[in-house]
């Protein structure tokens, strides 16, 4: 299928991008890797007279260490992140996640920024980035702002990004020494039906945990009750508590039925994967 006709703009600076956004407003969209946008344009679910390609703006795919954060440019591709030395060194869990996004062609073309801004609820990155405490750097003509990743996605295909804003970078705070992280996703299609991201930070007593569910609800969802049940316990006790408490916690989640599976199936997946992720953290 062919998208409806549009004019393609290929700006070479952010200033030019913001001018184009201002000029064309709702008639324009920005294009990064295109793996999701082009499908909606081809099926004519979305239609724009102006497409603003961001790939010629320099610096948007840079991955650098900055002030205690790993800063990932919004246009970095999943393939780039799966193989980047800084990601492999500081967040091997995120490199592995990137290596398992969809398939190799989508990883080569698709960008992290596009993935987050599109907010397809079955994406892999959001839950893990929430668990890692990432923040997003957004910019508009009027300046920049930071937003915690956990506040960014509102619901399926809905984010806090303003119409005149661009996501510039995803910044993940470096983990303290001894911290552990794991990500487990499962599904029979290209995207996970459900996923669980777990992070365990060494605490004065035992561990401080973060558990986030991805893909199964409309947005990444934190399992605070599970965290509270296991925080401060030693490894063995924590794993025993996760096994005992997780099903009741998962029962409280707003899990959606969809093409990826029924609600009960996904609750079961989350129950199993939360235990596996916790176990992996404690190995």
């Amino acid at each position: 299928m062919l998208p409806a006709r549009f004019e393609l703009h290929r700006p070479e600076s952010l200033a030019e991008v913001f001018d184009l956004i201002e000029t064309h407003g709702d008639d324009a969209t920005v294009l990064a890797g295109g793996t999701e946008l082009l499908i909606t344009l081809k099926t004519r679910v979305l239609r724009y007279d102006h497409v603003i390609d961001l790939k010629r703006v320099p610096g948007l795919s840079e991955v650098v260490l900055k002030d205690g954060f790993l800063s990932i440019g919004a246009l970095a591709t999943h393939h780039q992140l799966a193989n980047h030395p800084l990601v492999l060194e500081h967040f091997p869990v995120y490199a592995r996640l990137s290596e398992h996004v969809a398939n190799i062609r989508v990883r080569v073309a698709g960008t992290l920024g596009g993935n987050l801004c599109f907010a397809e609820s079955h994406a892999d990155p959001p839950a893990m980035l929430c668990a890692l405490g990432a923040r997003l750097r957004l910019a508009s003509k009027d300046g920049e702002r930071y937003l915690p990743m956990e506040d960014f996605i509102i619901d399926e295909f809905m984010t806090e990004r303003g119409d005149d804003e661009l996501l510039l970078a995803v910044e993940i705070p470096l983990l303290p020494t001894g911290a552990r992280a794991a990500y487990h996703g499962f599904g029979h299609l290209e995207r996970p039906a459900a996923s669980v991201a777990a992070v365990a930070l060494p605490a004065a007593k035992g561990w401080e945990w973060r558990f986030w569910v991805g893909a199964a609800c409309g947005r990444p969802t934190r399992m605070e009750a599970l965290e509270q049940a296991v925080n401060g316990l030693d490894a063995e006790a924590a794993l025993a508590q996760v096994a005992e408490q997780v099903a009741a916690v998962v029962e409280q989640l707003d899990v959606h039925d969809d093409i990826h599976g029924g609600e009960d199936y996904k609750r079961h997946l989350i129950t199993v994967m939360a235990q596996r992720a916790a176990k992996e953290c404690m190995q």
């Binding site: 294009l31 295109g34 398939n103 062609r105 989508v106 080569v108 073309a109 290209e190």
Partner: peptide, 24 residues
């Protein structure tokens, strides 16, 4: 972008030519 029948290499890496703008 699921089946791979339209795979071509761009700068040595595979992409789905069905969901890639020729302009790119």
């Amino acid at each position: 972008e699921v089946c791979g029948a339209c795979t071509v290499l761009v700068d040595g890496l595979p992409i789905s030519s069905c969901t890639t703008l020729a302009a790119d």
